[in-house]
Amino acid sequence: MTRPVIYWRIVSFVVAAAFVGLWQLIANLKLVSPVFLPGPDRAWASLVRGFTAGDLASKLLGTLEHMVYGWFLASVAGIALGALIGSSRTARSYVAPSLEFLRPLPVSAIIPVAIAMFGLTQTMALFVISFGAIWPMLLATIHGFAAVEPRLYEVARSLQMSRLAVIFKIALPSAAPDILAGMRLSLTVALILSVVCEILAGLDGLGHSVLLSARAFRSADLFAGVILLGVIGYLTSLMMSFAEARLLGYRRGVL
């Protein structure tokens, strides 16, 4: 980083801190009833108390578990199915239109169906989260496979590569940027659906605990939970950026 950039960052942090100060001021002056808006001091205290004395850590783990299991399942299934459909022109022309039709469906609408099938269980949550998170990766993989430079396929044919070799050596690397972008999108979807499933099914996690705090009007605990969810969102997206930079770094040299 050049020096001006660092200065701007620091000033930008100061601005953010000023907003937190403003929040504290509003809370202290009770401009908004403390039932709805605890000050950052109370939210922070609740966060610390939740981790040291309470069960916030186990709630956090619960949500992360739902999110990561569902997302992982969706990633494996999405990329495998996408490769299967994407690597054959015939399969693409039959299946892709149906998938494009299903894509704008608000995925949470599948929740009642999943509840009817699996009840209010962990299986239901896993099904919903992976069903919701599969779309970006599935479509990105199919699209990525379809967009492979045709000459690369010709090369593969003249080298007499097997279909598996073509998938792993040519199509997947070439579709990787699309797939990674899809995986990043899916993470957000997985987090949202985890929270919704926890709220509906009372599964152990942050979604359930923030709802309970809200019902009991414990606003400090509520804000602590929401802040934690924001931190999860921020850190997971940061990790994906890092992974993208590492995995796709070689492309910058090529292009």
Binding site: F36, I192, V210, L211, L222, F223, V226, L229, G230
Partner: peptide
Amino acid sequence: PSIALLPI
């Protein structure tokens, strides 16, 4: 996540 604001 927008849905986290639901309880608030």
